Simulated scan of single mutants.
Amino acid sequence: MRKGLGSKKFFVRLRFAVCSGEIFKQVWLKQGRPVGRSSYKVMTVGTAAKNSRTITVTYHLTDFSSSGVHNAFGLGININGKIEKSWPSRVNYKYGGVRLPIRKGWGDSGFRHTVYAAAGQGVPDG
């Protein structure tokens, strides 16, 4: 999966999972000229067990690389996930695991975040 990540956002939807990833590249400049490079990947895997109302999102920070003159080790990585759209829109969520937003450092590993929606907030089928 890491090898074919590419440079554009992507989503893979399965019955009880969703995956996404992004590559972040930095070019370090001195007096307007490139002197170094750094990059890293962030991948997320969200899973929900059958008949569960909790989604667990595992964030993977991987493939850190750098060359030349850089300050990658001082680079802060700000991570903030959000639910773009809910149905119905009035659903209230409870969050667990690592709380977002979070700031990670260069070379830090991943973490887990959970989202729970209690029953009784939706509209019955019919």
Rank of each mutant, 00 (worst) to 15 (best):
G4C: 04
G4T: 14
L5H: 02
L5S: 12
L5E: 14
K8F: 12
K8H: 05
K8T: 15
K9C: 14
F11S: 13
R13Y: 15
L14T: 13
L14V: 11
L14D: 11
R15P: 04
V18P: 02
V18C: 12
G21S: 07
G21H: 00
I23P: 06
F24W: 01
Q26I: 07
G32Q: 04
P34Q: 04
P34N: 02
G36S: 06
R37Y: 12
R37T: 15
R37M: 10
T44G: 09
T47V: 15
T47H: 04
A48N: 01
A48W: 00
K50Y: 13
K50D: 10
R53V: 08
I55M: 11
I55S: 05
V57P: 07
T58Y: 00
Y59W: 03
H60F: 12
H60D: 13
H60N: 09
F64H: 05
V69E: 13
V69P: 01
H70W: 05
A72M: 03
F73K: 02
L75A: 11
I77V: 11
N78T: 10
G81P: 01
G81F: 03
K82S: 15
K82N: 09
E84T: 10
E84G: 13
E84W: 00
K85W: 02
S86V: 14
S86I: 10
S86M: 09
W87H: 08
S89N: 06
N92C: 08
N92E: 09
Y93Q: 08
Y93M: 08
Y93N: 07
K94P: 00
K94W: 07
Y95N: 01
Y95S: 06
Y95W: 05
R99A: 15
L100D: 03
L100T: 09
L100A: 08
P101L: 05
I102A: 07
K104R: 14
G105D: 08
G107Q: 01
S109H: 02
F111E: 10
R112Q: 14
R112M: 11
R112V: 13
V115G: 04
Y116G: 01
A117G: 04
A118E: 07
A119I: 11
A119F: 06
G122T: 12
V123Y: 06
P124R: 05
G126W: 00
G126F: 02
G126M: 06
